Amino acid sequence: MKNLKFNQTLDKVGITASVLCAIHCAFFPVLLTLLPLLGIGFLVKGWAEIAMVLFSLLIAGVSILSAYKLHQNVLPLVLLATGFSIIGVVHLFLPKNLEPFILPFGGLSIAFAHYLNLNYKGRCFVKHHYKTQIVNRTK
């Protein structure tokens, strides 16, 4: 039970981080000129973006992979891999001017993977709880 709540918290943090990543990617060109004026110019540095991606990867890896053992549904894993693939391909192979149009799809794909993972875990918990109640009643 405690592990389930921790994993649900990880999914909620993962959803938030992924949506923030998508927003960051979509509005980065606009904010690029404003960040130094606002005193948050460090977000322009490449290390901030790498840290955001690694943070999302760590949370997603722990949350989605551990929950897969419970719900056995591959869709969150596929969406997770798709999201990180989009991010990787855009950063490595596409011109910088296409990033704001494509990268948000990677972040939103990861957020949706967390959302589905959260729902699948909830269904498994309800199913398990219901079966436990039935077994206890028959004893």
Rank of each mutant, 00 (worst) to 15 (best):
K121I: 08
I59N: 10
L77P: 09
L98T: 15
K12W: 06
S18R: 01
I50S: 08
L4W: 06
H114R: 04
P29L: 15
F28V: 02
L35T: 07
V74D: 11
S66F: 12
L108P: 00
I15V: 13
I64E: 01
S85K: 12
A17W: 01
K5W: 05
G14H: 10
N3W: 08
K131N: 03
V13F: 12
L32Q: 08
S18G: 15
K45T: 11
G107S: 07
R137P: 03
I64T: 05
L70N: 04
I86K: 02
C21P: 05
C21Y: 15
K5A: 15
K5Y: 07
T33I: 05
E99N: 10
T138Y: 09
F55L: 14
V135W: 02
A111D: 03
V62L: 11
L57E: 06
Y120S: 03
V53C: 07
K127P: 00
G14T: 09
L118G: 00
H91P: 05
Q133L: 12
V19P: 14
G61E: 09
K69F: 14
Y120R: 08
P29C: 14
L116H: 01
L20W: 11
N7I: 12
I134W: 02
A60M: 14
K5V: 15
K12S: 10
S109P: 10
K45A: 11
T16Y: 00
I64F: 00
R123N: 10
G41A: 09
L65N: 05
G14K: 12
L43H: 02
L94A: 03
S56E: 11
V53M: 13
R137F: 11
S85R: 12
S56P: 00
N97L: 12
P104S: 09
K12M: 06
L94N: 07
T138E: 14
K12Y: 08
T138F: 12
I110S: 07
Q8E: 03
L116R: 04
G14E: 12
V78I: 15
I87G: 02
A60Q: 07
A67D: 15
H128V: 00
V62M: 04
V53R: 09
A60C: 14
I50P: 09
L35Q: 04
D11P: 07
P100E: 08
V126S: 06
H129A: 12
N97Y: 15
L116P: 00
Y68M: 05
Q133K: 13
F27C: 11
A48C: 09
A113P: 05
G106N: 03
V19L: 13
H114P: 02
A17Y: 01
V62C: 04
L35G: 09
F42A: 15
I40Q: 08
I40Y: 10
K96F: 07
V62P: 04
H129R: 11
G39R: 12
L108D: 04
N136G: 01
N136M: 04
I134P: 01
I59C: 06
L31F: 14
V13S: 08
A22D: 03
K131Y: 03
L37C: 06
N136L: 07
G41S: 11
K121S: 12
F112H: 13
A51P: 00
L80D: 10
H91I: 12
V78R: 13
V78M: 15
I64A: 05
K131D: 00
L43C: 09
N7T: 11
H128W: 01
A22G: 07
V90C: 13
N73G: 00
